Amino acid sequence: MYRNELRRLFPIKESVFHHLGRYLFQPANPVWNIIERFYRTHLINSDEKVGLQIRLFREEPIPFEDVYNHIMACSEKENLLPKLDHSNHDNSTPIVDKRTSILVLSLSSEFYERIKAMYYEKSTVSGEMVAVYQPTHEREQDSQAKFHNQKALAEMILLSYCDKIITTATSTFGYVAHGLSGSKPWVLRTLNRLMKEPGPACVRSMSVEPCLHSPPILECKANVSIDPTEVEPYLRQCDDAPPMGLKLYDLV
């Protein structure tokens, strides 16, 4: 019924969440205050901002060291984090006029501490200055606490301001951030999935849109289930949550 109207509103299918989110998703002043204070204090003078969102799921417990190595493998392959100078020479690396900020978002502080120490102990190959920040580390998610949710929303928006965004597969936190940003993130594949399907540590998402994990089941009049991707060419399975998840893609 509304197909023609929706086509006129969203000629670019991948822009649906981006435009609706930026138009309708207006946080209250306390949240904007958190965002403004943090951005002005830590990020405003950065030449490049790299956002790293790490979500650990209780149902898939994985040792910290394995997850950390997984992140580093992704960064190394895709050239996402500034490279460290591992040479043993005593000559100092020339400093260049570039400042990179790494924003780590996680309920845990361990990843932030490790990455911060990494850039404290060694210089970068390029000579650029690197600063590592983490706004909060709440340890546990508490969806019933208002201030906890306000801080989470503020961090989603801060992540959306980054030039490069690395997110955790199937994380709705990451979906919102890169959807608001309008950029395609690098998605960390789950280690459990990698054991079943060997491949790269992370992949560049094919779409800006978030993934709908549990889409409604379409049935025709004959009461036969229909694969939506066979009906609408701009619907495809999510690259991080197969086989049930669906997301919008632009036709190439």
Rank of each mutant, 00 (worst) to 15 (best):
M1E: 08
M1H: 04
Y2K: 02
E5Q: 11
R8T: 05
P11H: 12
I12V: 14
S15Q: 15
F17P: 03
G21L: 08
Y23P: 01
Q26P: 02
P30H: 06
V31H: 09
I34R: 15
I34M: 15
I35Q: 08
E36R: 11
R37A: 13
F38T: 02
F38Q: 03
R40E: 13
H42C: 13
K49L: 15
I54G: 03
R55H: 11
R58C: 01
E59N: 08
F64D: 11
F64I: 09
E65Y: 08
D66V: 08
D66M: 11
V67K: 01
L81M: 09
H86A: 06
N91Y: 14
S101Y: 00
L103V: 01
V104L: 01
S106Y: 00
S109H: 04
Y119K: 04
K122N: 09
S123R: 11
V125G: 01
S126H: 14
G127K: 03
V130P: 00
P135L: 14
H137M: 11
R139G: 02
Q141H: 09
Q141P: 03
D142M: 04
S143C: 09
S143E: 04
N149F: 02
Q150F: 13
Q150W: 14
I157T: 05
Y161C: 05
C162I: 05
C162M: 04
I166S: 01
G174H: 04
Y175Q: 06
H178N: 09
K184R: 15
L188H: 04
R189I: 00
L191N: 04
K196L: 15
E197F: 08
I226R: 14
T229E: 13
R236E: 10
Q237F: 09
D239R: 05
D240K: 05
P243D: 07
L248I: 10
Y249K: 06
L251Y: 12
V252F: 13
